[in-house]
Amino acid sequence: MGPALEVAGLTVRRGRSEVVREVDLVVGEGECVCLVGSNGAGKTSLIDGLLGVLPTRAERLEFHGEDIAGTPPWERVRRGLVVVPQERELFPGLSVLDNLELGGVALSRGKARAGTLDDVLALFPRLAERRAQPAGTLSGGERSMLAVGRGLMAQPRMLVLDEPSLGLAPMVVTTIMAAIAEVNAAGTTVLLVEQNVHQAFALADRAYVLEHGAVVGSGPTAELAGSDLMQHGFLGSAAHGTVVDT
């Protein structure tokens, strides 16, 4: 069986500028891969390109061996490529439960499983407590949980999370990361975009480093963690442009 996601030469445009250029990325089935990079490195644009909400050009864009280039976002979600966006993008006036139910909207009626909702509520008991509340009234941590939970409702084959811990208290970050680990352990492929390198590296098997819209390094997290790139590359600016050979 091939990889879950195979991307070669992916270029993503935002307006007139190419914000991601010639990116190669492979995520194996069941793997947890993280994508790190400083603010403005193009991480979110890359994700938007994967979902198909930004225009892309690619030599290869395959999901579980099928070409998904040019397909609309709803088609990709239906195939199991689900993105939990950085801005959460919840439905603020709708209840927590409605938000979760809408998460499964792309599934055909036959595929929708009643148990999925129970699984998500078991993963985030806080959401069960808040089920009738409008999503707009939730705290930052609860919103992040709801965004992840809503993503899981689509029964993803691969879950892409764009900075799920952004702006959250350390306790909540731990909860979210534990949930992601649990989802990954249950067999779902995970692509985790993070600025919080320590948390992300603890979870992921491999990592890609993105800088100025291009991949400047990649490899097993254990090796990358000690490298010059991680020490100076995007955390500081001393070794700008350094490419580690991995």
Binding site: V53, P73, E89, F91, L94, D98, A106, G151
Partner: peptide, 18 residues
């Protein structure tokens, strides 16, 4: 519900696969 989702957040609707 799908109509209200589009109304509340177009981006959210795209992310859930509407």
């Amino acid at each position: 519900k799908i109509m209200r989702a589009c109304s509340e957040s177009l981006s959210g609707a795209l992310h859930v696969g509407v």
